[in-house]
Simulated assay, not measured.
Amino acid sequence: MPKKQGSLIGQWRALDAAGVRTAVIVIDEPEGFGFAKAKEDPSPLSLPLLSNQGAILQLVDQFQSAIACFVELNPGGGTKWTPTDRRLRRLVSQTKSHTVPKQHFSAFDDTTLYNLLWEQHGVSHLVVMGHFGGQCVKQSIFGGARRPSGHESTIIRPGAIDYDFEVYTTQRLINGSISDWPEHHKVSIFDHI
Rank of each mutant, 00 (worst) to 15 (best):
F108R: 06
D180Y: 08
N115R: 13
A14M: 01
L45D: 06
P182Q: 09
N115S: 14
E119N: 14
C136L: 10
N74E: 15
G150V: 10
N115T: 15
D85Y: 02
R89N: 06
H185D: 12
S7P: 00
P44K: 01
F108M: 11
D110L: 15
L49V: 04
A23V: 07
P42G: 12
S153G: 01
D41V: 05
P48F: 01
A107R: 04
I178V: 14
R90Y: 08
V100P: 13
Q53Y: 04
D164W: 09
T112I: 15
L15I: 00
E183A: 14
E152S: 13
A145C: 12
G144S: 07
F132W: 06
P48D: 05
Q120C: 14
A55L: 10
D28F: 05
I193V: 10
V128R: 01
P101T: 09
F33E: 10
H184T: 09
F33H: 05
F132Q: 02
L113D: 13
Q103S: 15
R146H: 04
N52I: 02
K96E: 11
D61Y: 04
V187K: 04
S153L: 08
F190L: 05
A107V: 06
A145L: 08
E152F: 14
F70A: 06
M129L: 07
Q139R: 14
Q135M: 11
G134A: 11
P2S: 02
G134Q: 08
S177L: 06
K96M: 10
S51Y: 06
Q120Y: 09
A55V: 07
K4M: 06
E40S: 13
G54N: 07
T99M: 13
R157Q: 13
I193W: 01
A160H: 02
G130W: 00
H98K: 09
S93D: 14
S97T: 12
L126M: 08
A55N: 11
D109E: 14
Q103D: 12
S153I: 07
Q171L: 03
R157M: 13
L47N: 11
Q53D: 03
K102F: 08
V24D: 01
K96D: 11
P148H: 09
S97L: 15
A66M: 13
V26M: 04
H192G: 11
I25E: 01
C136E: 06
G144W: 07
C136W: 00
H121Y: 13
S179Y: 01
R13Y: 01
T79R: 10
G150Q: 02
C69R: 00
E119L: 15
S179W: 03
D16C: 06
W12T: 10
L116H: 04
I189D: 04
